[in-house]
Design a protein around this nucleic acid. Structure first.
Lengths: 157, 157
DNA sequence: TACTTAACCAAGTGTAATAGTCAACTATTG
DNA sequence: CAATAGTTGACTATTACACTTGGTTAAGTA
């Protein structure tokens, strides 16, 4: 799981889409203008999002893009994964050229952390963010000292 | 908060350091060899980590690097922040050129998410990861499909 | 004091991803 | 048919990444 500007653009655009596509499709031109992202770059991002089945394109006048799922069914991790290149964070690629035991140990730790982040982002949907915005203002005032209990499911190979 | 290979290298190297610098300083050459990272690249990363006050360099024979804090005082977010370039994720830079209200709304949402991720990574320390590894080995043997409940104390600034 | 070690430092390089452009094509609407 | 807007591909500039080279400085050791 990588977090780059590209992923941020994608999430931002999807949020914009979630906001505005309630009634009719939203054109990329609108999103590009609102979010100050290059239209052609957006086209590339949405090509991937479409292939991932997250948005639907409607051609012709009055067309544009709509979400192909509900906002509470689209999570952040999937959006980012859709636009990012897949990457093997291990370098040793599992076991092949990895002779050093100590090296794999720290690799394991990172992969574990990476999975945690992924799971975390998977648990956050567009709906959460949209809803959260209202709550945020309240929470900002409360400014309380919480303890996070994070539940992690381990994927066994 | 960005998540790139650079940050991964930094975290990996710090984990390696945490493992091996218990008794004596660890040379970058050792880490470079173990983690198959270029020595000079490591030097650059550690220059930043040193400036951030996370590691101490010891010159001369028998020298190397040690952690300047305890493993439970060093969190992942700080490591990543130390090596990454600072980036303004807003593009509107607060308020200056941001005329569009709708744009800032989604920006807010992203910034909020970004803060969440940061807080999350702030709550995970090197000690957590090292400790987790022991648990992992046990879990691996048991080979059961368990659900880990990991309780992380959030450090408030 | 000379030598070795290893941190420290600066400048440069190749590569790949990012961010964006340009141009064409297809489907839909009116 | 014309306008709209998605779809696609190729191409370019910029940048960060990952790494290299070639040093200097400080601290031990012979």
């Amino acid at each position: 799981m990588r977090l780059t500007t590209k992923g941020r653009y994608a999430v931002t655009a999807m949020l914009d889409l979630a906001f505005h596509s309630q009634i009719k499709p939203v054109t990329l031109t609108e999103i590009a203008t609102r979010q100050t992202i290059s239209l052609s770059y957006l086209e590339q991002l949405f090509a991937r999002l479409r292939r991932a089945g997250m948005v639907k394109g409607v051609r012709g006048p009055g067309g544009g893009y709509t979400l192909s799922q509900k906002t509470n069914e689209i999570n952040i991790a999937d959006i980012i994964a859709a636009v990012d290149e897949p990457i093997d964070s291990t370098k040793c690629g599992g076991e092949a050229n990895c002779q050093k035991h100590q090296a794999c140990l720290t690799h394991d730790l990172w992969v574990g952390l990476s999975e945690q982040i992924k799971d975390y982002l998977k648990s956050i949907t567009l709906a959460d963010l949209l809803e959260k915005h209202h709550v945020q203002e309240v929470a900002k005032r409360q400014d309380q000292n919480t303890q996070h209990i994070i539940e992690l499911t381990r994927h066994t190979g």
